[in-house]
Nucleic acid binder design. Structure first.
Lengths: 336, 336
DNA sequence: ACTCGTCTTTGAATCGTTTCATTTGTTACG
DNA sequence: CGTAACAAATGAAACGATTCAAAGACGAGT
């Protein structure tokens, strides 16, 4: 029946003032045991549920945090989101997730939406350059934290992963296990990929007699990896690299398929292989794939922490936290 | 500066009444060109953003729809969510996604949250039995649509996929291509898996001389599939099935790894293989994997449509829409 | 009996929007 | 010139919660 009972209905039913009902809900200690029981009973009987819109209106702020990611289907982002949700829950807040799908109009749409919702703050993996919009948000009192993107600390905080270090770790591992002629597979036109390559080149530069060739792939997919892998198989054995570092796991899995398909190349004996991201499939590949793992839980958790810091400082103090990725060694790079 | 300008500030700045500003926003036709321009200019200058809490409070309902899924990381659900978001956007609504992670306390948490938000309606893939809670919601005017679960149409609407038909399609395809001794790999303790098996058995029953053996797997992962695959390889060739139907693609990929690893078995010549779900990896497997595709876009879109129907009928009319999955033929089941 | 302090309860004011009955302004027509 | 018809603008009331100054209740101490 009751479309929805209001606090006033509860007050009438329990024969108390509206303020008392509110106190039962928000400051139970201020209310005597007797009346508290009576009010709670009325709440149960009427099926009262707090109207969050009214509460927010009065409070001037919501208990909500907006998160805009490039792709919820991507395990990296869904993991970050999950961690952020948990961290926010501990603070009594809720995370609303928006998926921009790499589309800046969708991104703008969610930014507007979250502003109308008066979110406490915004976590965002920006599609393009959003520094202007972020300045506007800050002026309006909405702190923002960039996710997976390094921020200018004059403007806002950020959490990101050191891609160059990840590339360094991968290449160093290959070198440490005795390989000297390396190959890098990926699309360096993407910023993150370029950093990973740069790190790899740094590691190679530290070892005399080591070299790395760059094989540009057509995309970041399994199929693109397979194409590159086929080219490698066609080469005469002495021209093949001793180790291949792929800028993501999908590429690596594609390369692995090509190399193992014809049985002429053994992994890791003839060619070692390492990927990036440590997706679920990496461990269950034909040859379990070594990879670089990004600390997604820490990213999500820290993003929420930085947001809290921003709120406390009134949006004046910014911090850029950079995480170091982690090397995960599996069979595909086992000792030469 | 402006923490946030209200409609009253805009009215003062533009020298009009608050009602006029509201009309500019909601009924532009009621306002003369001249004042409209003046008001819009003030809105821009003050950086006014509508406060959604106040709007909702007045309206008594939000423009928000709640969606609770079992796992956002699962491509099935992220695809359904995406489709629902798009369909809702066309109606001017927004979808809030909650991830229960198969945990009924998290599920309950989101149900409470969405109720406080006064969502227009709820789409849910329930963890356990939620019929009681759904009854309560209906009484309170929150229509609910079950997703990926068949509903009792006396209580609420639902969108689901006919798993038995999916199993039938898969087995029939294997039979149509000449295979007679089939095997089913999966964990029939899961409801959906049991239905798929039942459908497969129905198809086998229609063909004389055909048989299907059930291989219970330890889970639904690639590794579980590999274990089953290894057992198959150990058998003498004449005892191996001619075709294997796995209750999901991960299992199928695991089986594929085992079978192709030792090169004693060829896919599809010696053993045909088909999975279920048609995940992205299916097409880029070593041997592209045939599979059963679930119409996730249609599920999401229809869920929103049914919700709209519920709203129009005041929550009295319920409908259960069951979709038929689709067979996707690839190389792994190519003609014998 | 009176005062003081503590604990509990009260209820009006407030948040920012939308709505709608009224008022004000303008044009057309007899 | 009067008035009917219509368009545009007004501003108070309402939505449902929280807050807070003030009032009320009660017991202890003198």
């Amino acid at each position: 029946m009751s479309q929805t009972a209001s606090i006033k209905d509860v007050a009438t039913h329990a024969q108390v003032a509206v303020g008392t009902v509110s106190n039962v809900l928000n400051y139970p200690d201020r209310v005597s045991q007797r009346t508290k029981e009576r009010v709670l009973k009325s709440i149960a009987e009427l099926g009262f549920v707090r109207n969050d819109a009214a509460r927010q209106l009065r409070a001037g702020q919501s208990r909500t945090i907006g998160l805009i990611v490039l792709d919820v289907g991507n395990p990296f982002f869904s993991s970050v989101a999950r961690a952020a949700e948990d961290a926010a829950a501990a603070l009594g807040s809720v995370v609303l997730v928006g998926d921009s799908g790499q589309d800046s109009s969708r991104e703008a749409h969610y930014m507007d939406l979250f502003q109308e919702q008066r979110v406490q703050g915004l976590l965002i993996s920006p599609v393009g350059d959003v520094s202007g919009r972020i300045d506007t948000l800050r002026e309006r009192g909405v702190p923002t934290v960039l996710v997976d993107e390094l921020a200018d600390t004059d403007r806002c905080s950020s959490v990101s992963v050191d891609d160059q270090e990840g590339g360094y770790l991968a290449a160093k591992h290959l070198l440490d296990t005795g390989r000297r002629r390396l190959a890098f597979v990926g699309t360096p036109s993407i910023r993150q990929v370029a950093s990973r390559l740069k790190g790899a080149q740094r590691a190679v530069g530290e070892v005399t007699g080591a070299s790395i060739e760059v094989l540009d792939s057509a995309g970041q997919t399994v199929l693109a990896g397979r194409q590159v892998g086929n080219k490698l198989v066609e080469r005469s054995p002495e021209k093949r690299p001793e180790a291949v570092f792929c800028s993501n796991d999908l590429l690596a899995l594609g390369v692995m398929q090509s190399l193992t398909m014809l049985r002429t190349v053994r992994i890791p004996e003839d060619i070692a292989l390492i990927g990036y991201d440590d997706i679920d499939f990496a461990i269950s590949a034909v040859v379990p794939l070594s990879s670089i793992r990004q600390p997604t839980e820490a990213l999500g958790r820290t993003a929420i922490e930085l947001l809290a810091e921003e709120q406390e400082s009134g949006g004046t103090k910014h911090r850029a936290v950079v995480f170091t990725p982690e090397l995960v060694v599996r069979q595909s790079t086992a000792g030469a």
